Simulated scan of single mutants.
Amino acid sequence: MLCALCQINEANKKNTHYLTDSIIRSCLNEDGSNVREKGFYFNISSKTPYVNFNFQRGTSIHHLEQTLGRVPTDEEIEKAKQIPFSVDYVFCSECEEIFTSIENPFIVKILPIFRENDHEETEDIASDEVKIVKMFYYLQVWRTAICEETFTIDSLVMEDLRLAILNYAQMTADDLPKFPIHVTYLNVTGEEINYTSNLVGSTNDRNPNIIVMNDFVIQFFENEQSIKKLDFHGLNDYDDYLQFINISNSNFKFKVFDNTKRLEFLSRLQEKEKVQKAVFAFSQIFVQEWISTFRGLPTQYIIQSYLRYLSDGTDNLLQYSEVTVKAKTKEFIGNLLK
């Protein structure tokens, strides 16, 4: 298999992070630290209502049982050996060095501006390091489209991005492709553990294509004609939305959410994207099982009782896999038959 970037060398590189590890790591770790492989995550891009928590091999068993509400299965433990948001044998070692040359300037020059300063009273941040910023985010978009089947970008746009990444060293800011891109920074206050309330994942059914990577939310448009004011759970303010669509290569402007707005956005995102879908899907499963058992429809009171049973008093419907939901459905009906 040839490397997806250079399309010449053999894809010999293992463990290539297609979302930059140093950005997402504090979100994935159970204590918000930068220690590798010590936390859990779930993917917001899936159309399924089930959130199968993925955890890393360094995650403590106590933390897992608290989060999942159960002991992890053998299958989940085996899956934990995989490194999140990384791939094997898609890129080559030489192109990995190109990725690093794009990532390092952002990590050294740009990231400290955000994470090492108080932005609670800040609404926007501008940077004149356009090449560093734009190419860093173009890299996230291109690699995600290569590595995630559900994250799709037009083939001509993908080729423009590939060539820009491949020729990064020779390019100036004026040479960069001018794809519209909007980035929101989610300001995190307090202890490092607060980063774990953020999310990592991507959408698969919208234009723009959206990537949530810890404290940065990327909205990528394929062309100017596709720009539209998408609400996306309060992420965008219609009054100033176009101010943050970075089309020109003269500077790059970030939208900033203070900590309160960050938490409100994340709450809405999880509620709309997962919880509502889960309630509907789980109710359908219950109704089907009820009909097969009693040959009739359950009342709304019975359905609500079932959902309360499923959440176990915690209002957490995101802890169950499909297998667990079906088992607990049978358990609930079985208890009624006793």
Rank of each mutant, 00 (worst) to 15 (best):
L235F: 02
L263S: 00
F254R: 00
K277C: 06
F286S: 01
D239M: 07
E289F: 03
K277A: 05
W290T: 01
I211H: 02
T293L: 11
R268W: 14
Q284A: 02
F232M: 10
I245H: 06
T293F: 11
L307H: 14
V287F: 01
I247K: 07
N246A: 09
V279F: 07
L307Y: 08
V256C: 02
F244M: 03
Y306N: 01
L297I: 10
N251K: 15
I210G: 11
I210Y: 09
F254Y: 14
I211T: 14
K272A: 13
N209M: 13
M213D: 01
S305N: 09
S226P: 05
D240R: 04
F232E: 05
E224D: 09
P298L: 09
K277Q: 00
Y306P: 09
L297A: 02
N259I: 04
L297D: 12
I211D: 05
Q300A: 10
S226D: 03
K229Y: 15
F254D: 09
S311C: 01
F280T: 15
T293W: 11
F252R: 10
F221I: 08
I210S: 01
F282K: 07
I285K: 15
N223K: 06
S267R: 05
S226L: 12
F252I: 06
Q276R: 15
D240F: 00
Q219P: 10
L242H: 15
F257E: 04
V217C: 09
A278L: 04
I291L: 08
I227K: 10
F286A: 04
S226I: 06
D215F: 13
V256L: 00
Y306I: 07
L230P: 14
F252M: 09
A281F: 08
F265V: 07
Y301S: 13
N209Y: 10
N214L: 11
L269S: 06
S283N: 04
P208Q: 11
Y309Q: 01
I247L: 12
V275I: 11
Q304F: 10
T293N: 12
N251G: 14
F252Q: 09
Q288T: 04
K277H: 03
F286Y: 15
L230E: 06
F252P: 05
L310S: 12
G296N: 14
N223A: 06
E264F: 12
I245Y: 02
Y238F: 13
V256S: 02
I247N: 02
M213K: 13
Q219S: 01
I285N: 11
K272C: 02
L266Y: 06
P298D: 01
V279N: 09
Q288Y: 15
N214G: 12
I247S: 01
I211C: 00
G296K: 15
Q288G: 08
F221Y: 15
L230F: 12
F265S: 02
D258M: 12
I218M: 03
I302D: 07
K255E: 00
V212W: 14
S250C: 04
N236F: 03
Q276G: 05
F282I: 08
L230N: 15
V287H: 10
D231F: 12
F282R: 01
F294G: 13
F221L: 00
N223T: 04
S305Q: 14
F252E: 02
M213N: 08
R295G: 04
L230I: 14
V212E: 05
